[in-house]
Computed example of a mutant assay.
Amino acid sequence: MRIAHVTDVYLPRLGGIELQVRDLAGRQRAAGHDPIVLTTTDGPRPPGGAERPGALDEPPVLRLGRQARTVGFGPYRAMHDRALRASLAAQRVEAVHVHVSAFSPLGWTAARVAAAEGLPTVVSVHSMWHDIVPLVRRYARWHAAAAWPVAWAAVSSAAAGAVRAALDGAPVAVLPNGIDPEDWMTPGRRPAGNVPTLISVMRMVRRKRPRELLRTLLALQRGHPGRFRAVLVGDGPLLPGLRRDLAAAGPGTGIRLTGALDRTSIRTVLARSDLYLAPAPRESFGIAALEARSAGLPVIARAGSGVADFIQDGVEGWLVHSGSDLRATIAALLDDPARLAAVAHHNRAVAPRVHWQAVLETADALYAAAAARHSGRLGQLLGSPA
C-alpha cells in the first residue's frame, strides 16, 4: 500500500513525532508497504522529487516547503488545498496517515483534503490537547471535522480522551508509539549495595518539567546526602539555565546533566541506572519511559499521563499526582531498596505489551477502518446501503 505520512515536523529536526514517523514508515517499508513522508520541514533537496532512502528502514521524503507559506511560529507552514491535492495525486497515494500535535497547519489541511478526495485517512494526535480543548473544538466545529470520513487516533488513552472531547465525542482509537523492547533490555543485575542512580531523559523544555525535577533532586540530596546519584539526559533551551542552577548548588550533589546523547549512549546509561523519573504531567506517551521500563528500570511517572498506559502503579513503577508526591515516593524508595528491587525484577522478567508488531497491526486496522468509513459515507451520499 502506498501510504503518505504527512507531518508538519520531520528530521533533521529532532523530536518525538519526527522519530516516530520515521520509525513507523520505515517499519512499514520493511513489512512490504510503500510509504512516503510528506513534510514542510526543510532538509536536503535533491533535484527530481523525493529524497531516496539511504537504508531499508528509511522511507523516502518529499519536502513541500517551497510550496508552503510560513504561519504562526517555529517551523510551521501552511499549504493551499490545490497544491497539497496535486502532491498526493502525483505520489499515487492509496492511504494518508496524518500526524498532528497542538499546532499542525499542514496536518489539518491534509486530513481535510485527503478525506474529501476519497483517500482512506487516519489522523494520529501525538500531544495532549487538555489545555486547548476549547480552541480545537471551535476549529473542529468550524470545519465539521468530527463528520469527516477519517479514523481518529491518539498515542495514549490520556491523549485520546482530550481528542474525543474536542471532537464532541467522536470515536478515537489508541495507536501507541512503537518500540522493540528487546533492543533496550540490559543484561544481568546491578550489584547490591551500590548507591542507586536515578535517570530521566527528556527535551529540556518547560512542559517536560526539567527545572522542577532538578529542584526536587537537589532538595532530596540535602535530606539524603550521598544516598543517590542522578543523571538528566537531553538538550533544549532550558539546559544552560539548568547548568547554572546546578553549579550554584555547589559540588557534591551527585547530579549530572549530560546534554543530548544518542540511543546507544542512552542504553549504556540505563544499564547503569536503577530508577527512571518521568515528571511531566502532560506526557502524551513517554517513549523514553517505555525504553527505560524495557531496560528493566522501575518508573515513577505522573498519573493521568500517557505513561499510565504501560506503567501500573505498584507493578512496573509508581504513578504520582504532584511534584510533592514524586519527591515523597523517591524518598520512600531510598529508604526501602527491597521495594525498588522487586519492581526491577518484575520489569526484567516481563516484557512490556507495547511493541512494533502490535503498532503495525493497529495501524493496518485503522487504514481498513478509514476505508470503511469512506465507503459508508459514499454509500449514504449515493443512497445505497453503507
Rank of each mutant, 00 (worst) to 15 (best):
A160N: 11
V136Y: 02
T121I: 07
D168G: 05
D180L: 11
G161Y: 00
V133I: 14
R137W: 05
H143I: 14
S156D: 04
V122I: 12
L175T: 07
L167K: 00
H143V: 15
A144M: 05
S157H: 14
G169M: 14
R164P: 01
V150I: 15
A144V: 08
A151K: 03
I179T: 06
V150T: 13
M128A: 13
S124F: 03
V133W: 03
V136R: 09
H130D: 15
A160Q: 10
H130F: 10
P176W: 03
L135M: 13
P176A: 11
V174F: 06
L175C: 07
R141F: 03
S127E: 14
V163Y: 00
D168C: 09
V122L: 13
V155Q: 04
A170T: 04
A173H: 11
L175A: 08
A162T: 12
R137L: 08
G169F: 14
I179Q: 00
A145Q: 04
S124M: 12
S156V: 08
I179N: 00
R141I: 04
W152I: 02
A144W: 06
H143A: 10
A154I: 09
L175Q: 12
T121R: 04
W148H: 06
S127H: 12
A116T: 10
R164F: 08
V155C: 10
V155R: 05
A140S: 13
A146H: 11
S157M: 07
R137K: 11
I179A: 02
E117D: 14
V125G: 01
W152Q: 01
G169D: 13
I132M: 14
A147T: 13
P176V: 05
A151C: 09
S124W: 07
V172C: 06
V163A: 12
T121D: 05
S156W: 06
V163E: 01
W142Y: 14
L135H: 09
L167V: 06
S127Q: 10
H143N: 13
S157W: 07
V125M: 11
A173N: 09
G118T: 11
S127L: 12
V163W: 02
N177M: 05
R138L: 15
V136C: 07
V150K: 03
V172S: 06
V133Q: 03
V125H: 11
E117A: 14
L167D: 01
A153T: 12
A153I: 00
A166C: 10
P134L: 06
A116M: 05
P171C: 11
R138S: 15
